[in-house]
Structure formats: C-alpha cells, structure tokens
Design a protein around this nucleic acid. Structure first.
Lengths: 349, 349
DNA sequence: ATGAAAGCGCTAACAG
DNA sequence: CTGTTAGCGCTTTCAT
C-alpha cells in the first residue's frame, strides 16, 4: 500500500494542503516546512497518485495515437509514433497506442469504436494516424472528442477545412525529383507506383506536371499484384524491360517500390546508376544503406509526429480552438543512385 | 460538459446506485428500471468517466510498454509492440508507449526515470522491452512496480530467476539453420554477424555447435563499422571475398545483415542461391519479398508481444505472483535463397 | 431490488 | 503563509 498525501502530512506534521503546495511547487511555502515535507516524501518513498490528481483536475495528460488500418511495421508509421512520443514526453504527456481497423463502408454510427473512445477520460485528445475515412472522423467529431488528423492518408469526400491537420508536402517532392532527373539529361523517365491510392495519385500528378513542363511524355507503370510494395516495383520494372521500352531513369512512389525495381534491373544486367538512375520516396533507413546509397525524397517522419503531438496538446488545452493546418516540407536527398544520362547519339544529318 | 452518473440518475428517476449497477451489468436490477436507465444513457449520450472509475477502484487498466535504448523503426520492436496492443485491446486494457534511453553505467538510484514511473497510477504494470540493463531493472524493482521483461535483450550480470520474463529461443534457431545448410551438403559455411552483443554471441555459439557436431571448422566474420546492419553485412562479405576464402553458404545473424552480404555477393557476380546459399534470422517482411525469397529463421514477434501482455495483465491482477518464464519457439522457413551445394569435384586417387 | 451515503487521494477555494 | 474543507464521479457497503 503506497503512502498517500495524508501519510506525508502526518510525518511532516503539516496539513495536506501544505504537502500539496510543496508537491506542485507553489512559491509561497515556508522554506523550513518545505524541507520537512520533502524529507517526509523521501522517507516514505511517496509518489503522488496520478489517478487522484487527474480525477480532481478533470483532465488526463494522455494523448491517444490511433493507427487506423495500417501496420506499425511500416517505418512510416512507427517513425511518426516515435516523434509523437518524443514531443509528448518532453511536455509531460503520455502516449497511448491504439490500433484500429475498420471498413470505410460502415456508417459512422455503426462503427465499433476502440476502447479509448468508448469511455471518456482515458485520453483527452486523439491523433488520427494511418489511413482514415470520413465515417470514423465523423464518429469522433460527433463524440466531441478533440482530435488532430494526419492529413496525407485521410481519404475524404468532404471538403476539408484547413484546420487541426498535419501532413507532409506530397506534391513538391515528386515534382522536384522528376525535375532533377530531367536536369540530369534523362528523357525516358518512368513513374512506378500505384495510382489507385489517392496519395499515390497526387505523386503521379506531380510527376506528370514536371514531365509536361519539360515537354516530355509521362510514362507511368503500375503492376499491382498485392500490397507488397517490393514485389510490385519488381514486377513493374520487369514489365517495362520485357516490352523493351526505353528507360534511363525511374521515379518510384515509395522506397520499397524502388528497391523492387532496382533488383529487377540488376537481374537484367542493368547497373544503377550506370544504366538506370533511380529516385525513391520516403527516405527510410534502408535507402542510405544501399550500395550505392539511393537518391530519395526525405520525409521527416519524426517532425510530422512532433507537430501532431504539439497540436494535440494545444487542442487538449483549448478544445474549442482551431489550429491552422501544418504542412511539413520534404527535401530531395541526392545520393549515388542517380547520375547524368549518357550523351544521346548525335543524329546523323 | 459531459453528462455524469447523476444526470443519468435524475433523468431516469432512479438513484445513482442503480445507474452504476446497470452500467456494470449487475444481474439483480428490475428490467423496467434497467430499460429506463439505458434510455437515459442514450438520451444524454452518457459515457462513463474512466478517471473517476479507476480512481475509486484504485487500479488503471493500462500497461506501459517501455522501449529502452532501441528504435521503434526496427520491425522487431514495433512487431512486439503491435502484439502487445493486440492482446491488451482484446482484454480491455490500454497500452502506453514510452521510449526510454539510459546508460547502463548510471547507478540505479541516479537514473532519471520516465514519467510513467515518477508518479504511480499512470500505468499499473510495465513491460520492459528493448535493451535493458540491471540498473534500470533494479530501479523498477525498488519502486515495487509490477513488471515483465523481454528476456532476449536483457543484459544482466545477476543470476536470473526464471520468472516474469518472456523471450524467444535464440539458441535452437541458429543451430537448426546451420544444420540445414550442412544437410544440403555445404561445408564452407560462414557465420556473419556481430559477436560483441550478447544475444549475437548466443547465436554464434549455436552456429559453432552445429558446425563442430558435423566435424566442420566454424568460420566467423564480423565487420562492425557501425550499427548499420546492412553495411556491416556487406563489408563482412566483401572481406571474405577479397581474401579469397571459400564460401558456399552463409548464416547471417540478422536479416538485414543477410541483405548486405547478398548485395556484396551479387556485386561480385555470385548468384544466390546458385553460387552461395544464404540464411537470415528474424523473418522481417522483406525476407519473403526478395527475389528469390530468403530462407530465414522466423521469430513470431507478435506472439512474443501477446505473451508479454498476457503476463503483464496477470501480474497486474496478482502483483505478488511469480509467473514462470516463457520461451517462444522459432522456426526455420525454407525458401529460395538456399539450395544443395554443387557436388564437390571427386578427388583423383 | 433499490436508495442513501461513505470514501477513494488530491486540488483549490477560503478563512484565518 | 498555513490549515480546513468541499467536492471531483464513481463504486461499494449498508440499510431498508
């Protein structure tokens, strides 16, 4: 049975009010009493009861990170969670990790919500991460629970107000990457990636924009065998090579896709970057560890997480306030998997 | 301001005691009253206040997953966390994610503990995951906080009582893997991996045992440039090849190490599995996605996590009880990166 | 079967 | 500056 504030008060021969003031670092306490209280705390090995404290203050320093419909094994999501925890810990908050899988086709009121939403007071603000749909967001809104949304994977049909959302810039990365390849003299630049998923769609369109601006024809290739990025990238490259299409550069919509394509090229005796330049997307750890290290678009997942956490804590303190959307910039990291295109044969005139 | 139990009682014209009995599914409630209460709950959109409930019950349905000195980006750790969450959610518990970095050289009483341990009542049981040392474990013990330890990465100098610990079998996996390569006719089988870390040491010894039993000389190679597994595996293979040592098979102490070695072999024109067979360790998702898919030792991380969670919940309910250590078996997954050794040239007699 | 009331540990408001 | 006390929402015990 742990010591309570009463025990400390008795031992220090003061009132519980004084003990409370000492615990919470109130300024106006007689130094001698403060010392006596602190001695009693040490002696009794007293740790405040967080339950009682949060109960009387009617608020819990807990943020729930809800990962919807995605696996934490994906470094994207674990990276964001890690950023969330980092910020929360520094601000004195705790992070509750909840995985939540649901179908987008269930009506909001019929969703079987995660426990953290079935009672109130477990966590006072939610971070909706992973892939989310309108039905769940709507259910959370209806409950009146403060929340912040990871915007990139929020598949919505409603018009979004630019508030209480954090994401990274999914448009300029692919655009910059493609432009970089063009600058290097490449013309047969393929986009490899799924175009069915909305966020891949955005990446594709940015690629197309860069190609068009340079007067080049966009070349998209997607083989969607499974939700296995590597295999799809591999198969897409196989397809391009088997058809005999010219290819000197690839922008892959995700690092894992790039790795698959890379292995396919290698299998066909094509060297990266000698024969084909490759740019990935995401900058997971593996990218820098390839031989040669892979050029890719870096998304600062930790920063995305920290920003989500910061906004969540602000919302928790001011549930009615609306915080403007934050978009985290991305950056092209140039490494060894890209190089200038071989000079084109001079046309005979 | 959310509705409280009082509001429900007033609306249903019953006492708060009755409302409590309905909420908690007590059997002896008049069906008519129960119906009235439920109607009031719906009408007021009442959700019980978890804070008040846990306060009066003096226990919180929260387990803290403390990841020490490791990154959640490593699929090992995120896989375990995901298993923990899965079990906890099904049992009505919540998971608090805490990252905690510390030095093993600080005395237990001088450690700056994570917030979840500085007050009590935030979480009632801890899962100590990641890499842990005696000082932290001792500090947790001194606080009298119930806890369960992931045993594989617990670096200890104390004699361990086989209780309140969960781990996977780090001995039979490497042994089986090596024996399998021997069965395939390989003789020049290299172990690639760090031997400085204790758990890698165990894997190495098991490899050595299998080699010795077959009358073969163990061949260990470690290049430890950094904590980058891929690069170390790559460099280790480079070393073997540059020295011109014979090699027809490799057991790598971790999948990422295997990937690095694989790429080095490929660079040197050696095909897997035609020229070299490779066995990895861990069975991260990428292993099955290689071309060909990689033979590896599967560690069921989710099961490790679920087992940790189950024991944590038991400890939480019976803090004094001691639960026998659980060791999760591993299994060799045979895939395309291994094949029988080419027949040795028949010695001229 | 139901209502009334004590009390969980703490904070904060108030009185002195 | 310090002590006293109400009260947070709920469960549980004790009457009835």
């Amino acid at each position: 049975m742990p010591a309570t504030i009463k025990d400390v008060a008795r031992t220090a021969a003061v009132s519980i009010g004084t003990v409370s003031r000492v615990i919470n670092n109130y300024p106006d306490v007689d130094p001698e009493l403060r010392e006596r209280v602190q001695a009693a705390i040490r002696e009794l090995n007293y740790r405040p009861n967080a339950r009682a404290r949060t109960f009387v203050q009617n608020s819990t320093p807990v943020i729930s990170f809800i990962l919807s419909n995605r696996s934490l094994l994906n470094p994207f999501h674990s990276g964001i969670l890690q950023g969330v925890e980092e910020y929360c810990a520094s601000a004195g908050y705790f992070v509750m990790f909840t995985k939540y899988d649901y179908s987008k086709d269930v009506r909001a009121e019929d969703l079987s919500l995660p426990g953290v939403l079935r009672s109130h007071g477990v966590a006072d603000c939610m971070i909706l991460a992973g892939t989310n749909y309108d039905n769940f967001v709507e259910a959370v809104e209806k409950l009146g629970v403060p929340h912040v949304i990871l915007s990139n994977h929020h598949v919505t049909e409603r018009e979004q107000t630019p508030f209480d959302r954090v994401g990274w810039d999914d448009l300029s990365g692919p655009y910059e990457a493609t432009k970089y390849l063009i600058t290097l003299g490449h013309r047969d630049i393929w986009y490899i990636g799924d175009t069915a998923l909305p966020w891949y769609q955005a990446r594709y369109e940015s690629y197309v924009r860069a190609m068009r601006e340079a007067g080049l024809a966009p070349l998209g290739q997607t083989v969607e065998l499974s939700d296995n990025y590597y295999a799809n990238g591999y198969a897409s490259a196989e397809f391009i090579l088997e058809k005999g299409y010219p290819v000197t550069a690839v922008f892959a919509a995700y690092d894992e896709i790039a790795f698959g394509a890379w292995d396919s090229f290698r299998k066909h005796g094509l060297d990266v970057p000698r024969d084909v330049s490759i740019v990935g997307y995401g900058d997971n750890d593996e990218a820098q560890f390839k031989a040669p290290p892979m050029t890719t678009v870096r998304i600062n997942k930790s920063l995305v997480g920290r920003q989500l956490a910061q906004m969540a804590i602000e919302k928790l303190q001011q549930p009615e306030g609306r915080l403007p959307e934050v978009v985290i910039p991305v950056s092209l990291v140039k490494r060894g998997s890209t190089r200038p295109a071989a000079a084109a044969p001079i046309p005979q005139s």
